[in-house]
Nucleic acid binder design. Structure first.
Lengths: 247, 247
DNA sequence: GGGCTTTTAGTCAATATGACGTTTAGTAGG
DNA sequence: CCTACTAAACGTCATATTGACTAAAAGCCC
């Protein structure tokens, strides 16, 4: 039962933040955006970009605002989605702070400009973080693991993988997204068959891309479909194979 | 950037609640548990069970506590899972309250005893709520719609459907869960083939159930598998067919 | 042209699926 | 005892999908 906030002894007020796991694919590695903390606790450590939710703001708006501040990219170019809330009382040494994590997927972008803000944002390979090469503050490593598993699962059933690709893109570029996120190779021929047959996933532009090496590839734009039907499922075996190479 | 809660002007403290969408299957209809509100706003209206998160509590603990209070059932018998957070500033007329919704699935239980608490909890058919027969307070109708779609999707890929069945149960009972939640009929023969072949989903007990009518059915217990592989996918057509009969 | 790469197309066996039909084992009623 | 009736359990079969594989096509570099 909900009663008047602030006037009921049972009501406790909590600090609420949003934290962003912003994925992108650079080269052949999955990266996330992290910021260096300027103050205690965890001063000098890396953390997920994020911040307090402001009074008039929804969580989605707070996440979009943080995303703009960190990437200087339009929200429309990125996929932004709520992941889940984290609420361990001990997760922040300063006191009770719960956070709502968001997952963002986007194309490779220029490293965000430092100086607009006190914090410096950098891309780091996910493998380096999960392998222990980069410590994350708070429970952000847990959030990252959850976000990674969620993203991997999303690739199976939805068309979000295309959000990693700047338009227009080739089937090969899209396949590389899957391979990098999932951590194992896919058969080029079978992948093409699957993707081109999926309704409204890939919209041919008629143009071609002429790479430095290899046969020219047809170019596509993102179609209107949000779901990939039938899905492209990882086998039980490939889930095991999926490993993050410590970098 | 996170700074000391309560000492930074940028920090706003929010009231945080958990709300529970508790599904069960009774007869041939999907039901949820709702409570009648005793106070304004929405006095007399129905609402999802829920309440404020207490200072030392995680969200999961708050959800489990509310679940115990409303159902007097062990948490272990139920599937309880965080759905997502809702944060529209106007969602509560008294002020800023964000809520984290939880999804619970469980077997049919006796209607919770009234009197242990001021509020009375009752099972109502989901169809009656979504059809407009029962108004829900706040944005709880939206939460219910999201929870229903999530539950339907969960049945495709996971083994949670078995959580609706008191053990031991028959394949036919499990099939009825799918039919009631999805809102359309399944082929008994193909369903059986699928479920019995799935690894570690159904564990035969060797016993049989002798119903009033029809051939005796083998009894099963829930296996250890949490995912259903391969999944049992609704076709695009059946998603459209899935309709909630206004009750 | 020869070697290299990647795209694109095609083959084929194994598997999964959907739509059926049949048998089995119980109850209910004459 | 015999006949309906019901639902479980099992089987069949045409079709669709998948995974593994071969091969051709179309560019590049030397």
């Amino acid at each position: 039962m909900i009663s008047k906030p602030g006037h009921d002894p049972e009501v406790s007020l909590l600090a609420v933040t949003v934290d962003l796991v912003i994925f992108t694919v650079r080269g052949d590695e999955l990266h996330i955006l992290v910021v260096e903390r300027g103050i205690e606790p965890f001063q000098g450590a890396m953390a997920l970009p994020g911040g307090y939710v402001r009074p008039g703001e929804t969580l989605d708006e707070a996440a979009e605002r943080e995303l703009r501040e960190e990437t200087s990219l339009e929200g429309s170019a990125l996929h932004l989605e709520q992941l889940r809330a984290y609420s361990e009382p001990e997760r922040d040494p300063r006191g009770r702070v719960i956070t709502v994590a968001y997952l963002a997927l986007g194309p490779d972008m220029p490293p965000p400009v430092a100086g607009t803000d006190a914090r410096e944002a950098v891309w780091v390979p996910v493998a380096s973080v999960l392998g222990g090469g980069t410590e994350l503050a708070f429970d952000h490593a847990t959030i990252l693991r959850d976000a990674l598993e969620h993203a991997r699962s999303q690739l199976e059933h939805t068309t979000v993988a295309a959000k990693f690709c700047p338009e227009p893109f080739t089937v090969g570029e899209l396949r590389r997204i899957y391979e990098v996120v999932w951590g194992f190779k896919l058969d080029p021929s079978n992948f093409r068959r699957k993707m081109t047959r999926a309704e409204a996933f890939l919209e041919p532009t008629g143009e071609q891309r002429f790479p430095d090496v290899g046969r020219p590839a047809a170019l596509y734009r993102r179609g209107s479909a949000r779901f990939l039907v039938p899905p492209l499922l990882r086998t039980a075996a490939s889930r095991d194979d999926a490993h993050v190479h410590p970098g």
